[in-house]
């Protein structure tokens, strides 16, 4: 139609600078040679090198990735099946489960975190596997990830043409064959987008990890949280810069996947 006027553009630019400039500041200062304070003393990449020898940062990175990968795997499988079940079948209580699905979206993280902690402490005395640590963190992450995966996958399934599956069945394909060769390829972009979203959520999560982690299962957000309390250092800036970079890449690819899934019948 038209291009926005200069006045509105200026206000918008000012607003974005106000909100986003701090991110640029953190990236710039991760290359600052000064050990303390925010005085610029020259360009260096030594803080990134120092991270490679920082055992706390390395083990936190390992934990974060392990947690994100395992929980995303479980949540994607369960969430996709749930979405499939909820769109395709009718069963008593379907409406209620539909509401339950949205509970983790609306319940504040702190409530989810404290309730999980309470649950683990109640059950932990009977089931030793549920002692606080990596297992409880993975289960906690899966709990909120399932909802997001299921919501994304269901959006994809709702847009599919049922005639395609009916045609496959009509032409003699069995249940599994129809699912594997027709339904699954069609819902796959949704599943991938859901998995990417779940992965980002797990990577960024602080509060659920914070409450359900045990000794030795510190993740990157927890590490940064405790470092900020002790005062900011350039290596933490470097670490934060790396995390921001990874998260942005994941989000951009998520947007890309979702853009592709808008059209369920791509033209050849």
């Amino acid at each position: 139609m038209r291009r926005p006027g200069w006045f509105l553009s200026a206000i918008a630019a000012g607003l974005y600078i106000f909100l986003y400039a701090p991110i640029v500041v953190i990236i710039v200062f991760s290359f600052n040679a000064a050990r303390f304070g925010t005085v610029w003393e020259g360009f260096t990449t030594k803080w990134y090198g120092a991270l490679l020898h920082d055992s706390a940062a390395l083990s936190a990175t390992k934990n974060t990735l392990l947690l994100a990968l395992v929980s995303t795997g479980i949540a994607t499988l369960l969430g996709s099946l749930l979405a499939f079940g909820l769109t395709r079948f009718d069963f008593p209580g379907r409406k209620i489960f539909d509401r339950v699905l949205y509970v983790p979206v609306f319940v504040p993280d702190i409530v989810l975190a404290t309730s999980l902690l309470l649950f683990y402490s109640l059950v932990g005395s009977f089931i030793p596997a549920l002692e606080l640590g990596m297992t409880t963190m993975i289960l906690g992450h899966v709990t909120f990830q399932i909802s997001f995966v299921a919501i994304v996958v269901r959006a994809r399934l709702a847009g599919l043409d049922p005639a395609l599956e009916e045609a496959a069945r009509d032409l003699g394909a069995g249940e599994w064959k129809t699912f594997l060769h027709v339904t699954l390829p069609l819902m796959l972009p949704g599943v991938l987008a859901g998995a990417m979203l779940a992965f980002t959520l797990s990577l960024d999560d602080f509060i659920v990890s914070f409450f359900t982690s045990g000794p030795g299962s510190t993740t990157l957000p927890i590490l940064i949280y405790s470092s900020v309390k002790r005062g900011l250092t350039p290596d933490i800036n470097a670490l934060a810069t790396l995390i921001i970079l990874i998260s942005v890449l994941a989000t951009v690819s998520l947007t890309w996947l979702q853009k592709n899934k808008q059209d369920p019948h791509p033209k050849k």
């Binding site: 974005y16 991110i23 957000p221 940064i224 900011l232 921001i244």
Partner: peptide, 21 residues
Amino acid sequence: TLIDLPFSVSPVISGMIYVLV
């Protein structure tokens, strides 16, 4: 991408950037 950025940045880092500034 800028609009989505606060979604993708970990909340702890979102707080940290303001402490740094």
